[in-house]
Nucleic acid binder design. Structure first.
Lengths: 338, 338
DNA sequence: GTAATTAACAAAAACGTTTTTCATAGGACA
DNA sequence: TGTCCTATGAAAAACGTTTTTGTTAATTAC
């Protein structure tokens, strides 16, 4: 079977506990003994059994990731980036990532089970919607957790998110700076999602800050429908005072906006500029290539895992709910070129 | 602290072992006692500690996923699908997914550590390249593992992969059936990757089966470069006996092929048809929309996890190396419309 | 009416670590 | 010479389960 601490002890001619002391650097072990021990470890390829270690230390060195209903469109193509970021933070600190999946739709027991079974030392909650119950129980028992891009009472717990509001503000401002006054806006999805709300709010704020009135029909509500964006583009362009720029809530929406605009005889970017969210391969390879606000997915993963690990290791009090908002970056491409 | 089996025992007025028996359904526990026990469990929200359970049962109920150097382009946008598939298989059988990350480039110790630390009951190996050492040690110790889309000596271990060769064959045949005789082919990346080799081979086979000679300059080697596909399209089209159809090794390559073709004055699909691999949002929203061979990413995740779990649970002998090749599906869109 | 069987539960050992406590041998010191 | 310290290491307890073995009382068989 697998090699245990006793095998190493026998090999090094020493008691089991001494192996443990040597490995954890805690007590006094003579240098000569240490040398023998590490040689034995190397020879036998010994690694402490995680279950046994976890049992006595009450620590698994896993960070839990609860994936609920995976969002239909938003995170999908970018999840790898997020996980990569988490992986970077985790492996630096010697943690693994334990993913717990939802068993049935609307069943959230997988979240609390991680805590109850003690299969991880903390949790990253990611997905679209979550009921109040899991939050409450985790908070009550002071089990470390971090929200990733999730809506919740601000200040009640730590969370990491892209600064959607600022991104929309910056995007609108970018278009305003290019001389546009009539700017259409399409949300990435229904206003049930707070990413949609935040983006809309940022857009409104920018318009207002620069003294521009927003016509209510300059605002369209996008969806996950594959053709979302076409109708909205049409509405923005086929009117007396047509929009000269459009801020599209998501990459596929931007693609549809451009397609429909071209069909209607408007050139992008000369007649109408289009700026998108969610930088992906789609925005890079489209013709014209699409300018986009890049969400820092990898960094979001990294920061959420780092924050969680700091909470786990007690470097951060549980009370100071840390809200991290990460800035987005504008990637200018052809669709907004002068 | 967390609630233990002893708390439940006290609550139910019974010994700890009886709780265990009741939960695992193994021994005879009186129905009345069972009822009291399950009420106590419910009341206290008890779940067995995974470390303790794992220690005595020598089983973690985790399936390990070792992500090495994550491929630059191929799996990226589709990883979520793969993980979703794994999640489905795992959660059905009450497993969690434990992801172990590479600490440094070219360092593969994270693979063997999962086995040595016994933090999972088996491993799914996914990525691009892996040295011989990890395979050998895992095989030697009969630690269950499954290769996901990986090159290795056939028959030496179980693996799951998309049937790239057949996909390319079917794709070529699809174009041949539409009357094309001069069909260009672009690999998704360098021939170091066996997915590229398999696809090329399938293409050659189809051409040969239908009595069509392959001109060597109908074959282009694609890359992860964002503009990959443009040069190749040019080469295929600007010659006496120009190609009338192109089989593009990847979605971005297909997009570039179409872009360049149009720039050269060829209409897609009337002058040249384009069929792509790797169905993604890009292929759906492009204009014209791009026909593609859809890789069954979710199913690959599902099958690899299912296979691994069967190995773990001893339902499958370790010796019968199971090679699962999953068929791809042609999604016809505008770029190959008659 | 007693022996054998069975049903229901408890006691205790085991899993592989870590950690607290204990033991021994030298050496320093008086 | 005896006491005290220190360096080094071992013994033993603990972590929370599962599982093997024991124990008791009730039931069945003769």
């Amino acid at each position: 079977m697998a090699v245990t601490i006793k095998d190493v002890a026998r090999e090094a001619g020493v008691a089991a506990c001494t192996i443990s002391f040597a490995m954890n650097g805690s007590a006094h072990v003579a240098d000569a003994t240490k040398k023998r021990i590490f040689e034995a470890i190397e020879k036998l390829n010994y690694r402490p059994n995680q279950s046994a270690r976890g049992l006595v230390k009450k620590k698994t060195n896993n960070i839990g990731l609860a994936i609920s209903e995976v969002a239909e469109g938003l995170e999908n193509s970018l999840l790898l980036e997020v996980i990569k970021g988490m992986g970077k933070a985790a492996s630096e600190k010697n943690y693994d990532l334990l993913i717990s999946f939802q068993k049935k739709k609307d069943d959230e027991s997988h979240i609390l089970d991680v805590y109850r079974k003690q299969s991880a030392d903390g949790l990253i909650l990611m997905g679209t919607k979550v009921g109040e119950r899991p939050y409450k129980e985790l908070l009550k028992h002071r089990f470390p957790f971090v929200l990733l891009g999730r809506p919740y009472k601000p200040g009640a717990c730590s969370s990491v998110n892209a600064d959607n509001s600022k991104a929309a503000y910056d995007g609108a401002r970018y278009l305003i700076d290019k001389g546009h006054r009539r700017i259409g806006f399409i949300t990435p999805c229904s206003l049930d999602y707070d990413a949609a709300q935040d983006r809309l709010e940022g857009y409104r704020q920018a318009m207002s800050d620069f003294g521009l009135d927003v016509q209510e029909d300059w605002i369209g509500i996008g969806s996950f429908d594959p053709s979302s964006g076409e109708k909205e583009a049409e509405a923005f362009l086929l009117r007396e005072d047509r929009c000269t720029a459009i801020l599209a809530g998501r990459d596929t929406i931007a693609a549809n906006v451009i397609k429909r605009s071209q069909q209607l005889g408007f050139k992008v970017p000369s007649d109408v500029m289009v700026l998108s969210f969610d930088d992906s391969t789609l925005t890079q390879t489209a013709t014209p290539s699409i300018s986009a606000l890049r969400m820092p997915m990898m960094q979001m993963g990294f920061e959420s895992a780092s924050l969680l690990i700091r909470m786990i290791e007690g470097e951060m009090s549980f009370e100071e709910a840390n809200t991290i908002l990460l800035p987005c970056e504008i990637i200018p491409r052809t669709s907004t070129a002068d």
